[in-house]
């Protein structure tokens, strides 16, 4: 009997909880080292970016309004669903050139990172927030709030772990995200989108655009309805491109591709301070 013929996956964008092709109709060929075709991957356009920002903006208040307990459970659910697809993620990384042993290790660490950040949702306020002893009859406290819609340039390497290390802390406080994936490892990004789509994460909270990061970044940095951009995955940018961020006084975040820390959660937050008199 002949061997079973594989069913090949179409790698599409993830916008507002759906998996559309690029409105531009473009794809790019992802090739293995030996030059064979791994997949045709959707190549996002600036209009896809625009749609992703609209989806992220409309999802943001609802995501932030959920209880921290609920957000924590949903992020933990992402880890659960990812765990059941460990093999596939490792294989995807491997197809993109990561040795299989390292790939397995990276997948495990990525899953564990979701678990780690899921647990922070209802705890990081303890660390980032403060009650402030002002010199007067006032109760004064500072609390972290999500910045809003954040753009994330996923680090090229480690492809999966880097993406999770930047995306998860942004979601903890209630931000929604538009992710530009690295061109080297879009497969795991799309697989992660499928995990997100089946983990009770509301549509629009995470949006993933595969394709030419360089082409998209000026549009992301110049977008007036994006509050912050994480440039960890784009360390060397043209000056004129980054300067676009000043258009709406955008927050620029620069971190480590493989950091795991509550300080990263705070990097994606605003600090709000509230005063109230204490009297009878």
């Amino acid at each position: 009997m002949a061997a079973r013929l594989d069913v090949q996956k179409t790698y599409k964008l993830f916008i507002g909880g759906a998996f559309p092709r690029s409105e531009s109709g473009r794809t790019f060929a992802l090739l293995a080292r030996n030059g064979s075709l791994i997949a045709n991957v959707a190549q996002a356009s600036r209009k896809d970016l625009r749609d992703a920002v609209v989806a992220a903006r409309s999802a943001q208040p609802g995501w932030a309004a959920r209880t921290a307990y609920n957000r924590g459970q949903i992020l933990y659910r992402v880890a659960e669903v990812m765990e059941s697809r460990r093999g596939e993620f490792a294989e995807d990384l491997n197809r993109c050139g990561v040795p299989i042993a390292s790939a397995r290790k990276e997948v495990e660490r990525a899953i564990d990172r979701w678990v780690w950040y899921a647990g922070w949702c209802d705890k990081f306020h303890h660390l980032a927030g403060t009650v402030n002893s002002v010199a007067g009859p006032y109760f004064n406290f500072t609390m972290p709030e999500p910045t809003g819609v954040v753009g994330i340039v996923a680090p090229e390497s480690p492809g999966l772990l880097g993406l999770v290390s930047r995306l998860a802390p942004a979601l903890v406080s209630g931000n929604t995200a538009v992710v530009l994936t690295g061109e080297a490892s879009p497969l795991t990004a799309v697989s992660l989108a499928e995990v997100v789509a089946t983990s009770d994460v509301p549509g629009g909270v995470v949006n993933i655009l595969t394709g030419a990061t360089k082409e998209m970044l000026p549009w992301l940095l110049g977008h007036r309805d994006v509050n912050a951009v994480d440039l960890t995955g784009a360390p060397n940018l043209e000056a004129a491109t980054v300067a676009e961020a000043a258009e709406n006084v955008k927050r620029l975040i620069r971190g480590e591709p493989d950091d795991q820390s509550p300080y990263v959660i705070a990097d994606f937050c605003e600090m709000k301070t509230v005063w109230h008199p204490v009297g009878r």
């Binding site: 403060t130 402030n132 004064n140 509230v274 005063w275």
Partner: peptide, 20 residues
């Protein structure tokens, strides 16, 4: 970044100040 409830224009070195 700063919300004054039932007061206004209060400042203190222990109280963070800054904007959204």
């Amino acid at each position: 970044g700063v919300i004054w409830a039932n007061t206004f224009n209060q400042f203190d070195p222990a109280s963070p100040f800054g904007g959204y």
